[in-house]
Simulated scan of single mutants.
Amino acid sequence: MNVGFIGAGKVGNTFGKYFEQNNIELTGYFDTDINAAQEAADFTRSGLFTSVSELVKSSDMIFITTTDNSIEKVWNIVKQLSIKGKIICHCSGALSSDIFTGIDKKGGFGYSIHPLFSCSSKTASYKELYNALITIEGSREHLQEVEELFRGLGNDTRIIDSTQKIKYHAAAVFASNQVIALAGQGTDILEQCGFSRNEAIKSVLFLMGHAIENIEKQGLVEALTGPVERNDVMTVRKHLQILSEEEKEIYISLSKKLIDIAKEKNPENNYVELENLLEHN
């Protein structure tokens, strides 16, 4: 099986280099930016295509690695071509393979293949892809074959139902992108306390890194510490008194989730007073 890519951005480069490093044959890249396609082809030791039709004709498996809002546009071009027996994939976390409308009538097989992974670099992210969980959904016919492709590379895989893609992607945003927002919020408040930005970021990184390390070592429930876990109503009340309305809204929402975890850790504790405090602020 050989693989071609439509879209030469970070995701296309990352998967392409990952495959090339693992001796999976690549045909090459097409992109509306020919320079980007050439760079990707050079990076992955594959070919440059100047038309979608030639890339599709030459490839058994085609990855559409464009932005989410371009996937359907590309598919509308691809589905006009001969794709009988070909595997068509996209790498969106939020979209399912349902976007490949009419693919069964064309004799093709559609899949969404998404790494639970933050792809931040065209040229370096492939090095971390080995550790990523790959979620897959799509046509039944080659589902096992696609899964075995990634299992053979050493990845853990998870077959997901197409109806759960949006919720799955929201979970990924909570655990990745919104962590950056929390880091930003903590940094801003430390700056209000007189920290320099570098001091604040360094402090936040230490705290967040320690929390993640504790989750890994002790598990999610046992890793929980702090005033909510201790049922320290007085401290939480003082926090709420000094935070801005926007900061307070975030603090309350997250603290409610912390109470759920705290109840699991400390079933003997009564968190009613703390819950009431959060509910009425």
Rank of each mutant, 00 (worst) to 15 (best):
V3P: 14
G7S: 09
G7F: 09
G7E: 09
A8N: 04
A8V: 01
T14H: 05
K17Y: 11
K17F: 11
Y18H: 05
F19C: 11
E20R: 12
E20N: 15
N23V: 02
N23K: 06
E25T: 12
Y29A: 00
F30R: 00
T32I: 02
D33Q: 02
A36N: 11
A37E: 02
A37H: 06
Q38P: 11
E39M: 14
F43L: 03
T44K: 12
G47F: 02
L48N: 07
S51R: 06
S53F: 02
S53V: 08
L55E: 07
V56R: 01
K57I: 06
I62F: 01
F63T: 00
I64W: 10
I64S: 10
T67D: 09
S70L: 01
V74K: 12
N76V: 09
V78G: 14
V78M: 13
K79S: 12
K79Y: 13
S82H: 14
K84D: 14
I88T: 03
C89L: 14
H90N: 10
G93Q: 13
A94R: 12
I99W: 00
F100Q: 13
F100W: 14
G102I: 08
D104F: 00
K105E: 15
K105S: 14
K105I: 13
I113F: 12
H114L: 10
F117P: 15
F117Q: 15
C119M: 15
T123I: 12
E128T: 14
L129H: 03
I134G: 05
T135Y: 08
I136T: 07
E137D: 08
S139W: 01
E141I: 03
H142I: 00
L143I: 07
Q144P: 04
V146Q: 00
V146M: 07
G154R: 09
N155T: 06
T157A: 08
D161N: 15
T163G: 12
T163A: 14
Q164M: 15
Q164R: 15
H169F: 08
A172H: 08
A172D: 09
V173N: 10
F174V: 04
F174H: 05
A175Y: 09
S176T: 08
N177E: 04
Q178E: 11
I180G: 07
L182F: 08
A183V: 15
A183P: 07
G184T: 03
G184K: 03
Q185R: 09
T187L: 06
T187R: 01
T187P: 02
C193V: 06
G194I: 05
S196I: 07
S196D: 06
R197G: 02
N198R: 13
N198Q: 14
A200F: 07
I201T: 10
S203G: 06
V204N: 00
L205H: 02
F206D: 07
L207Q: 05
G209E: 01
I212D: 01
I212E: 02
I212K: 02
I212N: 01
I215A: 10
K217N: 11
L220S: 14
L220W: 13
V221S: 04
V228D: 13
R230E: 11
D232V: 09
K238V: 00
Q241Y: 10
E245Y: 03
E246D: 13
K248L: 03
E249F: 11
Y251P: 04
I252Y: 04
S253V: 02
S255W: 00
S255I: 01
K257Q: 02
I259R: 02
K265Y: 02
N266G: 00
N266F: 06
E273L: 03
L274T: 06
L277R: 01
L278R: 03
E279I: 03
